[in-house]
Structures are given as C-alpha cells and as structure tokens.
C-alpha cells in the first residue's frame, strides 16, 4: 500500500515555543489515522503544518508522493481539504451556503458548479432547501455538514479533521461521525483526524498516534487500544480517564 501522507522529523516553532518536536508519521492511502492528545500536545498544529497554516521550521511533509515546500499550490488544495473544530467560526457570517460552496469552484475555475453544489448538499444530507441560507439560519450540526460539503466539493483525496464534533451535542456528534464514515467509504478518502476523545478515535480510525507536549508518545492500532495492549503509562492514563469517573 502506498503512503498518502508522510511526515518526518517535523518541527514547528511559534515565537521560540516548540509546538512540535520532531514528529514523524505515515498515513497510508485510504486509511483513517487518528491523532489523540490533550491541549498543548501539538495534534492540531500537526494538521495546520500540513495545510501550510503553521510555520514548519524543519522536517519534511510528503503528500501523495510530492514533497511540500514552503508554499502550497492550488493543486495541493484539490488533494487536501480540512474541516475545522468550531462550526460557528468556520462559516463566513455574511455568505449564504450557496456562496460558500461556490467559492472553491470559482477559485479553481470549475465549470459544472450548479450540479456539484446540489450533489454536495445531497451528499451531506442537507438537500436543496438549505442552499440559500446564511450561517445563522443553521444549527451547529447543519453548519458542520456545510463545512464538510465545502471540503468535499473540490473532490480531495485526503480530508484533515480537526476535532470535527467536539463542539456538538452528543446526538448530533453521532450523526456527523456517521456522515464522515459514509463519505469516506463512498469516496475512498484518506482521513487524518484529531481528537481529544479516545472513544471517537477508536470508533473512526484504524491506527492512531498518542501525542503529548509536541511529541509522539506511541503509535497503536485501534484494536491494540481496545484490548488495552498499550506500552506507555500516559496512554493508560488517557484510557482510564475516558472510562468516566471512578470513586476511590
């Protein structure tokens, strides 16, 4: 199987703060890969470094066989798209859903816009009725569906997901997770998903990396995690914490 994303020795420094300290990982084509960690672990920074939103100070990132330089070209963004954590902040407040979905098509000069927009809305389960609404006329879950439609409309092969459901209610979270699984299956997408919630990562991903303070703690398969076959104490702590409160 070929590698979709390869990251080697990645360092990200913000004003002397080392957010990522030499992290390496490999995501295979068609795989769903999870990054788990608490705040400050560098998991979101890793996603942002891949997209070019965070400054890379050393290390290499290779996407679909192409090693990335300082800037990303348009072709990169047709391969890689991202869904953000906060559905209330990731949609432009003055644009209708229609306008939001049209923008990527206009940027890349794609002609069959009408059809693509309708198909994208159908695919995320929203339908035509939502096409001309503004963000404030949508619920949190609907907004996240629009964000997913926007990411899919350029037909990328890789989707980066930055805590896509952590701002949603549990019942809405289930719907969005199901939707993500469905589009992944249908489009044979590669996922790189960030979450602080082990249960979500084991549900969504085949392999995962546990991160802490900008470093990789360990790399596991989902079944290793489910079977508690972990070697690091930190991972064990996370596992225990995710099982809820236990009175001592």
């Amino acid at each position: 199987m070929t590698a979709s994303i390869t990251v080697e020795g990645l360092e990200v420094v913000f004003d002397r703060f080392r957010a990522l300290k030499g992290v390496s990982l490999e995501v295979r084509e068609g795989e769903s890969y999870g990054l788990v960690g608490e705040s400050g672990s560098g998991k979101s920074t890793l996603l942002r470094a891949i997209t070019g939103l965070a400054p890379v100070s050393s290390g290499t990132i290779t996407v679909n066989g192409k090693t990335l330089g300082k800037t990303r070209d348009k072709a990169f963004y047709r391969e890689v798209q991202m869904v953000f954590q906060d559905p209330y902040g990731s949609l432009h407040p003055r644009q209708t859903v229609d306008r939001l979905l049209q923008e990527p098509l206009a940027i890349h000069g794609i002609a069959d816009g009408e059809k693509r927009i309708e198909r994208a809305l159908d695919e995320v389960g929203l339908g035509k009725g939502f096409r001309f609404r503004y963000a404030h006329q949508l619920s949190g879950g609907q907004r996240q569906r629009v964000a997913i439609a926007r990411a899919l409309i350029l037909e990328p092969s890789i989707l980066l997901l930055d805590e896509p459901t952590s701002a949603l209610d549990a019942s809405v979270q289930a719907e969005v997770l199901n939707l993500l699984e469905e589009v992944r299956r249908r489009r044979k997408l590669t996922f790189l998903m960030v979450s602080h919630d082990l249960a979500i990562i084991t549900h969504m991903c085949e392999r995962l990396m546990v991160m802490q303070n900008g470093e990789a703690v360990e790399t596991l398969t989902a079944s290793q995690l489910i079977g508690h076959r972990v070697s690091e104490d930190y991972t064990r702590n996370l596992l225990r914490a995710s099982e809820g409160f236990v009175r001592v």
Binding site: T51, L53, R72, D73, K74, F76, Y77, R78, Q81, M82, F84, Q85, D86, G89, S90, L91, H92, P93, E103, P104, I107, H108, A147, R150, L154
Partner: peptide
C-alpha cells in the same frame, strides 16, 4: 485569524481575492 478566512485560504484563494 478566524476559521472562515482560514478555510478560504485552504481553498487556495489568493490574498487579493
């Protein structure tokens, strides 16, 4: 620095646009 501007950057839009 809002996510919706970042999202457009990730579409590959030029700074001018």
């Amino acid at each position: 620095n809002s996510d919706y501007i970042k999202a457009v950057q990730l579409m590959g839009a030029s700074p001018f646009r």
